[in-house]
Design a binder for these strands. Structure first.
Length: 285
DNA sequence: CTGCAGGCCGGCG
DNA sequence: CGCCGGCCTGCA
């Protein structure tokens, strides 16, 4: 086990980072810290004032892994300033979701996770990702608890469509199977795609079954550092048609967002998503 | 018991 | 092309 500290970490709020919809494998502990499984292992993070404390078992250098994963080298204060100047809505949303950061997650895991997200709900998405990891991923022990890494493409490729169906993937099983095959057979190379322009990368990703515009945008934003991609899901559709565009056409909304928020459209999306979702949670209960 | 959840796909007009 | 029903499954 390892531990590292990052001093004077600004614009970093655990709850907002893990609950703004970008990740599925982080859980809050009773002491207020969060534990999650990432590509290289298991992490536990907590904030003590402005010090970020990370413990974990990982394959690689913990400090380097954290810097990249939590996007610690990016100045979110500056991004927020730019977005705040756009208008009052963005000002409010970014103040509400202060401390949100876009995690640099693994593109393969994001591909499968967001294929699963289609017409699904968050508890079930998390559960099926957990099922897949348990069935095909490597075991990691941290603090006497067993965790399972998300399987590699090769590890997952041994699963048949029938196997996948038993993991509660529903109709998405065949998409997962084919997507996995394409990656293993190198018909798609996620690393190469990540080097392309946002537009070209999006087009390439959409060649994978189960990947439409929204899923592609999530992969681009959450694992390929394409901060200008703007995933339009049902929540964003609601906010955008309420606040900005007189249309529910997904393509139009996306185009409008990029025109308005530019290279940080993706961050704007996270603020709006988190803002709108919490509003829903407050009024429903 | 319908309806629907962080969409995508395929068929039809 | 744009539109719309169907799709696994579980929960309100």
């Amino acid at each position: 086990m390892n531990e590292v500290k990052f001093n004077t970490v600004k614009d970093f709020e655990l709850a907002h980072i893990f609950e703004c919809g970008q990740c599925f494998r982080w859980k809050k502990e009773i002491d207020g810290s969060y534990t999650g499984v990432i590509k290289q292992g298991v992490l536990n993070v907590k904030k003590e004032n402005d010090i970020l404390v990370v413990k974990g078992v990982v394959d690689g250098d913990l400090r380097n892994i954290c810097e990249k994963y939590f996007d610690l080298m990016t100045d979110y204060g500056e991004i927020k300033r730019v977005l705040c100047e756009k208008d009052e809505h963005m000002k409010r949303a970014s103040e509400y979701g202060y401390g949100i950061r876009i995690l640099n997650q693994d593109s393969w895991e994001m591909l499968i996770s967001f294929i699963i997200s289609a017409a699904n709900n968050i508890p079930r998405i998390s559960k099926t990702i957990e099922n897949i990891s348990k069935a095909y991923g490597k075991k990691v022990t941290y603090e006497d608890t067993t965790y399972y890494l998300f399987p590699t493409p090769e590890e997952l490729s041994v699963a048949t469509v029938e196997d996948l169906r038993t993991l509660n993937l529903g109709f998405r099983d065949k998409y997962i199977k084919e997507a996995t095959r394409m990656v293993v057979d190198k018909e798609v190379d996620l690393e190469t795609i990540s080097q392309m322009s946002t537009k070209d990368a999006r087009k390439e990703l959409m060649k994978i079954p189960g990947v439409g515009g929204k899923v592609a945008d999530c992969i681009l934003l959450f694992s390929m550092q394409k901060m200008d991609s703007f995933p339009v899901d049902t929540w964003i559709k609601k906010v955008m048609s309420e606040l900005y565009v007189d249309s529910t056409n997904i393509t139009k909304i996306g185009e409008y967002a990029y025109a308005k928020f530019g290279i940080y459209a993706g961050i704007a999306q996270q603020y709006l998503f988190y803002y709108k979702r919490s509003e829903g949670k407050n009024t429903e209960k």
